[in-house]
Amino acid sequence: RQGFVPAAYVKKLDSGTGKELVLALYDYQEKSPREVTMKKGDILTLLNSTNKDWWKVEVN
């Protein structure tokens, strides 16, 4: 499932696989259909980080 999360809630990881991955630093509950819920410690695939406030991710 793809959607947006606050950029301040995730940290980029060095995956070494060519995929950009991020680590969820905090729990986040989606507040609109365009967002996704994540739990602290989740590893997500980063799809787009051009917006400084909201990053598009895919929940694996």
Rank of each mutant, 00 (worst) to 15 (best):
L46I: 05
D14C: 14
Y28H: 04
V10Q: 01
F4K: 03
L44N: 02
S32T: 10
K40T: 07
K31V: 08
K39Q: 10
K40Y: 04
G16F: 11
P33Q: 08
V10C: 13
P6N: 03
K11S: 10
T17A: 14
Y9F: 13
L47D: 01
T17Q: 15
K56Q: 12
A7G: 04
K39P: 00
K40F: 05
D42Q: 14
S32D: 10
R1P: 06
A8S: 14
S49P: 06
L21F: 12
G41D: 06
K40N: 04
G3I: 04
S32R: 10
Y28W: 10
K39R: 14
E58V: 07
E35K: 05
K19Q: 12
V10D: 01
W55S: 02
K31Y: 05
G41S: 03
N60Y: 14
V5S: 01
L25W: 03
N48R: 06
V57D: 01
D14W: 12
L47Q: 03
K11D: 05
V59M: 11
V36L: 15
Y26C: 13
L47C: 06
W54M: 06
D53Y: 15
D53I: 15
W55D: 00
K19T: 12
V5H: 01
T17E: 14
D53K: 14
Y28A: 01
A8C: 13
Y9L: 14
L13I: 15
F4L: 09
A8K: 15
L46Q: 00
R34S: 14
Y9Q: 05
T17K: 11
N51Q: 09
A7Q: 05
Q2F: 07
Y28I: 02
V57E: 00
D42A: 07
G18P: 09
A8V: 10
G41M: 03
T50V: 10
R1L: 09
F4N: 04
K56I: 14
M38T: 04
Y9G: 06
G18M: 10
A7F: 02
L21C: 10
V57R: 00
I43Q: 04
T50A: 12
L23G: 03
W54Q: 02
N60P: 15
A7L: 02
E20T: 13
K40A: 13
N51A: 07
V22A: 10
K11Y: 10
A7D: 01
R1K: 13
S49W: 09
P6Y: 04
D14I: 12
V5T: 01
I43N: 03
L46K: 01
G16H: 14
L47F: 03
S49Y: 08
L21K: 09
Y28F: 07
Y28T: 00
K40V: 07
D27S: 08
W55M: 04
G41P: 00
L25K: 06
N51L: 09
Y28Q: 00
K52L: 10
S32A: 08
Y9I: 06
L25A: 04
R1W: 07
V36A: 05
K11H: 10
L21E: 08
I43R: 05
G3Y: 04
F4A: 02
E35G: 11
E30Q: 13
L13H: 06
L21D: 03
K56R: 11
R1V: 08
M38E: 00
D27E: 05
N51C: 09
W55Q: 01
Q29M: 13
S49T: 10
Q2C: 10
K31Q: 14
E35H: 07
E20N: 15
V10R: 00
L13S: 04
V57Y: 01
E20Y: 10
F4G: 01
Y26W: 10
E20P: 14
E35A: 06
N60L: 14
K39E: 06
Y9H: 06
T17D: 14
E20Q: 15
S49G: 09
K12Y: 08
A8W: 09
K39I: 07
N60V: 12
L13M: 12
V22L: 08
V59N: 08
A24G: 04
L46D: 00
S15T: 15
K56W: 15
D27V: 03
K56H: 11
F4R: 03
V59G: 07
K52C: 09
K39H: 14
E58N: 04
A24E: 00
L46G: 00
E30M: 12
S15Y: 14
S49E: 14
V36M: 11
K31C: 10
P6F: 04
E30D: 05
L46W: 02
K11A: 11
V36G: 02
T17R: 07
V59H: 15
E35Q: 10
L25I: 10
L44R: 00
S15Q: 10
P6T: 02
T37L: 03
E30I: 07
K56T: 07
D53S: 11
V59A: 13
A8P: 07
K31E: 07
D27H: 05
W54V: 02
I43H: 04
S49F: 07
A8H: 12
V5I: 08
S15E: 09
D27I: 02
L13E: 04
L46A: 02
K12S: 05
I43D: 00
N51T: 06
W54H: 02
Q29K: 12
T37R: 07
E58L: 08
V5F: 00
V22F: 07
L25E: 04
E20D: 14
D53G: 08
K52Y: 08
P6C: 04
D53H: 15
S49H: 09
A7E: 03
L13Q: 05
Y9D: 02
E20I: 15
R34I: 12
L25H: 02
T50Y: 09
Q29L: 13
R34T: 13
E35S: 07
L44V: 05
E58W: 06
G18R: 10
G3D: 01
S32H: 12
V57S: 00
N48K: 07
T50I: 08
M38A: 02
P6A: 02
G16C: 12
A7P: 04
L23A: 06
G16M: 13
D14E: 14
K31N: 10
E35M: 05
N51E: 10
W54T: 02
Q2D: 05
G3A: 04
T37E: 04
D14L: 11
P33C: 10
G18K: 12
L13G: 03
V57Q: 00
A24P: 00
K40G: 05
V22R: 01
A8N: 14
D14Q: 11
G3E: 02
P33Y: 09
F4Q: 03
Q29I: 14
L44E: 00
G16L: 14
S32Y: 06
G18T: 11
